[in-house]
């Protein structure tokens, strides 16, 4: 940060710098994996603790897990439909939970206290690689869902009301992952930047409402990503008549 104008200890702003780990010819962003492992660890700990002793009368963490399960089931069922939502519920739920803990973990945990030689820790979803990976998984999923449910009849979807739709539907296959990944990436990165800039300018009070807004946005983005993923899968398995 030698040339950076930002000098406050917790208000430093680093954009587009990464902590590189080199494996042979492959390079990966170390900070993304470090935070994602911590957050996945926290999520799995919660799940393991909550499912350790499950009863018919739920107690403690089991309540929270059942609430989440019910929420995800409703989401998957309304978007995908009664017939196949069970197959896709774990995937939709994992997307929701992973994005949610990533966004909130990035916003709530004071990562800046940990010094890295390069780059900084933050929400894994503020890295374009993560969001594109998630979006591509969604694309693969809806293709797989359509093909496994309807076979080659899946491609009827492209000419569905009329064959005029064909080019638009083909373009959609590219815009869907693009919009999914950029929406999430942009929102989370922008949120981090706004908070960082505000903390840099006015280190007291003012950033707090923006931080709360950030938490709200983070939750909404997780919900939007999961809902759209479920909607795309539902669209692919829907039967046209």
């Amino acid at each position: 940060m030698g040339t950076s104008p930002f000098v406050l200890p917790f208000a430093a702003l680093e954009v587009g710098q990464h902590l590189y780990w080199q494996f042979g010819k492959l390079r990966i962003h170390g900070q993304v994996f470090m935070t994602s492992w911590i957050l996945i660890g926290a999520l799995l700990t919660l799940v393991v603790v909550g499912t350790k002793k499950m009863e018919r009368d739920p107690k403690g963490v089991q309540n929270l897990l059942e609430f989440l399960w019910d929420y995800i089931r409703d989401l998957a069922r309304t978007q995908i439909g009664e017939k196949v939502y069970r197959d896709w519920m774990p995937f939709i739920g994992t997307l929701f939970l992973f994005i949610f803990v990533s966004n909130w973990g990035g916003a709530l945990i004071p990562w800046k206290l940990i010094e890295l030689p390069s780059g900084e820790l933050g929400a894994p979803t503020a890295d374009i690689n993560t969001t594109v990976a998630l979006a591509l998984l969604v694309s693969l999923s809806y293709f797989y869902a359509g093909l496994s449910n309807k076979g080659l009849r899946y491609f009827e979807y492209y000419v569905h009301p009329t064959p005029i739709m064909l080019p638009f539907k083909i373009v959609e296959d590219f815009t869907k992952p693009l919009s999914l990944s950029f929406r999430l990436f942009g929102n989370i990165l922008a949120d981090e930047l706004v908070v960082a800039v505000l903390v840099f300018l006015v280190p007291l009070v003012l950033p707090v409402p923006v931080m709360f807004l950030g938490l709200f946005t983070s939750a909404i983005q997780a919900l939007i990503f999961a809902t759209l993923a479920a909607y795309y899968i539902g669209e692919a398995v829907e039967e046209h008549h």
Partner: peptide
């Protein structure tokens, strides 16, 4: 570096 720095992070994250 850069905001749009794609590398092996993507497949590994997937």
């Amino acid at each position: 570096g850069g905001l749009f720095d794609f590398d092996a992070t993507l497949p590994l994250m997937a």
